[in-house]
Design a protein around this nucleic acid. Structure first.
Lengths: 127, 127
DNA sequence: TTCAGGTTACGAATCCGGTCGTATATTGCT
DNA sequence: AGCAATATACGACCGGATTCGTAACCTGAA
C-alpha cells in the first residue's frame, strides 16, 4: 500500500469536493451554482479555489475545451479516513470507541442503520 | 438546556485544551513543556495562545499569584459533540452511521470496547 | 538592596484561507 | 468583422491564526 501524503482539505475545499464526489465531475459554474444554494460567494472565488485545489493536486481537470471539467483526485473514503483518524487521535485520545459512542449517543440512527452497525459489530467479534 | 454558542477551537487551541482537560489545571509552563514533547514553539507563543483563549472565554484562569493557573472553560464532551456533529454533516452527509462504520472499520476496537458498543446498541434498539 | 530567573503583557511580522476586481481569451452569433 | 456572453488567469486585499522579540514586572536568594 502506497503511503498517502497527509492531505488536509480546508473547509471550503471540502464543500467543493463533496459536489465533485456526488456528481463525478463538474465545471466551475456547476459547482458554484450548487454551492450557491446555501452560500454566497462570487463566481471567481469558486474558480480561484478550484484552481488552487488543482495546483495542490486535490482535483484534476480536463482543459481540452474552453470550459474546464473538474474531477476529484482524492477519494471520499480516503479523505474520511484521514480526517476521522486525526480526530480520533486529537480529540478522543486514540480511542475509536469513544468517537463511536459520541456519534451514536448524539445522533441516534434508525432501525435499518442499527442493523447495519450490528452486522459490522458481529463481524468484528468473530475475528 | 442553554444554547451553547458554536465554539470552534483551532487546532492549536485544541492541543492546549487537551492538556488542560487531562490535568484539570496547568500553568503556561506546564502546558508548554507537555506540548514541547512533540512540537517546538517558543514559550511566549504558548503564552500568547493561552492569553487569546482567555479573551475568547475558552479557558479561565486564576491570576491571584504571579504565575497564573489555567483551566478549561468548555467541556471535552461539548467540544467533541460540536466537532463530531459538524464532521457528520460536512463529510458524511448527515449520517452518523457512516461515520461509525468508518471509525470501526479502520480502527478496530478490542473485546471490551466491542461489548461496550454492543451495550449502547442494545439500548438504542429498545427505544 | 541587588540581581538572576522566571512570568506576563504587548506589539509586530508572517502566513494562509478566502474573497473579489479586473484583464484577457474563447466562442458563437449576427 | 464586430459584439455579447462566458471562461480562465492573476494579483491584491482582508482577517484570523500563529509566531516571536522585547519590555515590564515579580520574587526569592545572596
Amino acid at each position: 500500500m502506497a503511503i498517502s501524503k497527509p492531505i488536509k482539505p480546508t473547509e471550503s475545499e471540502l464543500e467543493i469536493l463533496r459536489v465533485l464526489w456526488d456528481k463525478g465531475q463538474a465545471t466551475v459554474r456547476e459547482v458554484h451554482e450548487i454551492l450557491g444554494e446555501y452560500k454566497d460567494a462570487g463566481y471567481t472565488t469558486t474558480l480561484k479555489l478550484m484552481q488552487i485545489m488543482f495546483e495542490k493536486g486535490i482535483v484534476k481537470r480536463d482543459d481540452s475545451s474552453k470550459t474546464h471539467i473538474y474531477k476529484a483526485n482524492i477519494t471520499r473514503e480516503n479523505t474520511q479516513q484521514q480526517i476521522v483518524g486525526k480526530m480520533i487521535n486529537s480529540l478522543f485520545g486514540g480511542s475509536s470507541t469513544q468517537l463511536v459512542m459520541q456519534a451514536l449517543g448524539n445522533h441516534a440512527p434508525n432501525k435499518e442503520e442499527l442493523e447495519e452497525i450490528q452486522k459490522l459489530l458481529d463481524n468484528l467479534k468473530k475475528q
